[in-house]
Simulated assay, not measured.
Amino acid sequence: MKHPYFFGYGSLVNRRTHVFTPCHRARITGWRRAWCATANRPQAFLTAIPDPEAETLGLIAPVPNDDWTALDAREEGYHRHDASAQVVHEAGAVSRIAVYAIPAKDQLASSTEHPILMSYLDVVVQGFAAEYGEDGAQAFFDTTAGWETPVLNDRAAPLYPRAQTLTAAERALVDDGLARLGCRVLSERPSAGRA
């Protein structure tokens, strides 16, 4: 029996953050990954952006009970797009594969008011390292846009609800990637009106 699947390209690549099974490594063409801020969230999140030249690594997993409702709720603020013809995978027969993306009309310019949470970034990089090795983690940095968005170092008191504990090697992957790209890391969220 064929089931619908979804393509995860951020925190969903980290199998520790969800119970969707079975997951399969996959890649999508025609979409790239980028950091994005919206008015309804205090921090930046990853989104998929249409790009005919792009290829993005991730995972696919079946939609729970073939019902999109719970998954749509988890991905609140995102719109679901049919990407069945754009995903290469080894899952066998699937009825449909969707990718979630924040609509362009809802995206805000990069600012310190909506930083990337280090605890969220840690989860994503940990997932890519587990699935694709150190090279895959480095490729995440290289193929993701929006690194002008500041990163809030919340490791001591994680704000991301699905935060994970990283090994020293995993933390080094994150820290080295940020340093290599010259990313701005904040020790605290600036007060309103201060950039």
Rank of each mutant, 00 (worst) to 15 (best):
M1N: 02
K2M: 08
P4D: 02
F7Q: 05
F7P: 01
G10P: 00
L12C: 07
L12H: 06
L12K: 02
V13R: 04
V13C: 04
R15H: 11
R15W: 09
R16I: 02
T17N: 03
H18D: 10
F20R: 10
T21Q: 15
P22K: 14
H24T: 00
I28Y: 08
G30I: 12
W31Q: 11
A34E: 14
W35N: 01
W35R: 04
A39E: 14
N40G: 02
R41C: 05
Q43W: 15
F45G: 04
L46V: 15
A48N: 08
P50W: 00
P52I: 11
T56H: 03
L57M: 14
L57Y: 13
L59K: 00
L59P: 00
A61L: 04
P62F: 03
V63M: 02
V63P: 00
P64G: 05
N65Y: 07
T69H: 13
A70T: 15
D72E: 11
A73Q: 12
R74A: 14
E76K: 13
G77H: 09
Y78R: 09
H79M: 09
H81L: 02
H81P: 00
S84M: 05
A85V: 02
V88T: 15
V88S: 15
H89M: 08
G92Q: 12
G92T: 06
V94W: 02
S95R: 12
R96Y: 01
A98R: 08
A101V: 05
A101D: 03
P103Y: 04
K105P: 00
S111F: 12
E113I: 13
I116W: 01
Y120D: 10
L121K: 07
D122P: 01
V123E: 03
Q126H: 11
A130Q: 13
E131H: 08
E131S: 08
Y132F: 15
G133L: 09
D135L: 05
F141Y: 14
D142H: 15
A145V: 04
W147K: 05
T149N: 07
V151K: 11
L152D: 06
L152S: 03
R155D: 01
P158Y: 09
L159N: 06
R162H: 15
A163W: 09
Q164L: 05
T165V: 14
T165Q: 14
L166H: 03
A169W: 06
L173E: 13
L178P: 01
A179N: 09
L181G: 04
G182C: 06
C183F: 07
V185W: 12
V185G: 03
L186T: 01
L186D: 02
S187D: 11
S187K: 11
S187L: 07
A192E: 12
R194H: 09
R194L: 12
